[in-house]
Each structure stands twice: as structure tokens, then as C-alpha cells.
């Protein structure tokens, strides 16, 4: 469990991985955007608005992935006191919030022309809005205490309580009548998207994921530097 716990080892590993994920992300974005905007066909029903899907769906997946991984990290922090777990959650939160906002707004921009409304309070849309507030609440809570350790403890508990929302988002469209349609890719009987539309979607999903990996590494490095600064300031204040 603690094999990757040592921040120094993490920093070495991160330095090794970062250039590769960055290049990979750029390549995936280039390929994915080309396929999404130039190659993929119009949908038989939705015409060109289907191209919003190539942004909306990867953003939604990443919003859920970032939160789930933060909840797992929160469990590691609370149970095993893993020193990097809290650093990860704090670094990932603004990214997750960004993906959720992107998902909500592109959903609105897609809903208006196709459904005929910007927003409805159905189970799917509402639970994703709650996810956005969970991100904001976590970020506010972590910084709300004078003692950073207590802030992180409270934040971890919020992340775990809010984790119940993740399966609700995923299955809301199956459990209840919603305006939002059921899943098209992650479903029992295989994807219901034609291959010409599925490929750009999967490539852009990977592009989002590698972007997240690269950016979260940068943010974790910044947070570790910040912690070192705090330590040095304390030693300095303590006198030589």
C-alpha cells in the first residue's frame, strides 16, 4: 500500500511519466477533434448537434471518474493515512469541477435545440448538478480550517458521503423516467452508437483522461512544493 506513498518516489515517477502523457494527450486531441469535426457523419435524427456529444460525454465520464478516484483516495487517507491521498484529492478537485461544468453547459447547449429546453429537473440532470456542488463544497471545506489536517479530514468525509451520488448519476436513467436518454456506450448489450461516431468519442475520451493525468501531476507537484514551503517556514520561525 505504501509503496508509492513516499512523495520523493512519486515525484521521480511523475517526472518520468509527465512528458509521455502530455505528448499522448496532444496527439489524441488532434486525432479526436479531426475525426469529430471533419470525418464523423451527421446523426440521422440530430444532424450536426451530435458533434456536441464528443465533448459532452468525455466531460461527463471524467467528472464521474475524477470524483470516484477522489472518493477512493479519501478512503485511503482516512483508513491508512496515506500521505499522498489527500494531495491527490485536493489536486483533482478543480479539474473535476471543470469537467462537470463543461458537461452541464454542453448538455444545455445540446438540450435546447434537440429536446426543446435548456434545463429540466429530471433525476440525471439534477444528480449531475449535485456532483458539481459536491466538488465546490469539497474545495471550500478543505480550505475552511486553520489546521490543514482537519480540513483534509472533513473534506475526505464529505467525498465519501457524496460518493453515493455516483451510482445514482450512472443508473438514474435506468431506474427512473428521465428526459435524458439511457447510456449508449457502457451498456449490457454493447454500444448503440455507430462505429463512425464511436471512434471519435473513445479517442476524445482518452484525450480527456490523459489531459487529466498530466494536469493532476502538475497540481500535485505544486501542492507538495507548498507543503515543503510550509515546513521550511516553520523551521525558519523556530529559529536556527
Amino acid at each position: 500500500m505504501h509503496r508509492f506513498a513516499n512523495p520523493a518516489r512519486f515525484l521521480r515517477l511523475a517526472a518520468l511519466v509527465l512528458p509521455w502523457v502530455s505528448v499522448l494527450s496532444a496527439l489524441l486531441f488532434a486525432a479526436g477533434l479531426y475525426l469529430a469535426l471533419f470525418v464523423s457523419p451527421e446523426d440521422y435524427q440530430q444532424g450536426d448537434t451530435v458533434r456536441i456529444m464528443y465533448i459532452h460525454v468525455p466531460a461527463a465520464w471524467m467528472a464521474m471518474f475524477a470524483y470516484s478516484s477522489m472518493a477512493v483516495a479519501a478512503a485511503c487517507a482516512l483508513v491508512w493515512r496515506h500521505p499522498l491521498a489527500e494531495v491527490y484529492s485536493k489536486a483533482a478537485a478543480p479539474l473535476g469541477a471543470g469537467f462537470t461544468l463543461l458537461c452541464l453547459v454542453t448538455g444545455s447547449l445540446w438540450g435546447e435545440p434537440m429536446w426543446g429546453t435548456w434545463w429540466v429537473w429530471d433525476a440525471r440532470l439534477t444528480s449531475v448538478l449535485i456532483l458539481f456542488f459536491l466538488y465546490l463544497g469539497y474545495m471550500a471545506l478543505v480550505d475552511a480550517f486553520d489546521d490543514p489536517q482537519r480540513g483534509h479530514r472533513a473534506g475526505s468525509i464529505l467525498l465519501l458521503v457524496g460518493a453515493i451520488n455516483v451510482p445514482i448519476i450512472k443508473f438514474s436513467v435506468d431506474w427512473w423516467n428521465t428526459l435524458h436518454q439511457p447510456a449508449s456506450v457502457l451498456r449490457m448489450d454493447g454500444p448503440s452508437i455507430h462505429g463512425d461516431m464511436l471512434w471519435p468519442l473513445l479517442i476524445l475520451a482518452l484525450a480527456f483522461k490523459t489531459y487529466f493525468a498530466a494536469t493532476v501531476i502538475l497540481r500535485m507537484r505544486a501542492e507538495l512544493a507548498e507543503r515543503k514551503i510550509q515546513t521550511l517556514r516553520l523551521t525558519q520561525a523556530g529559529g536556527v
Binding site: L37, E42, G47, D48, T49, R51, I52, I55, H56, A59, G98, F99, L101, L102, V105, T106, L109, W110, E112, P113
Partner: peptide, 18 residues
């Protein structure tokens, strides 16, 4: 974009921005 330019390009623009 088949008349949906404002919706499609706003989505891609916002993604770039964020």
C-alpha cells in the same frame, strides 16, 4: 453546422476555454 453553429461551436469553445 447544419444551422446549429451557435450550439456546436459554443460547446467546443467552452471546452477549449476550460
Amino acid at each position: 453546422m447544419g444551422g446549429y453553429a451557435i450550439y456546436v461551436w459554443s460547446s467546443y469553445g467552452l471546452a477549449l476555454l476550460i
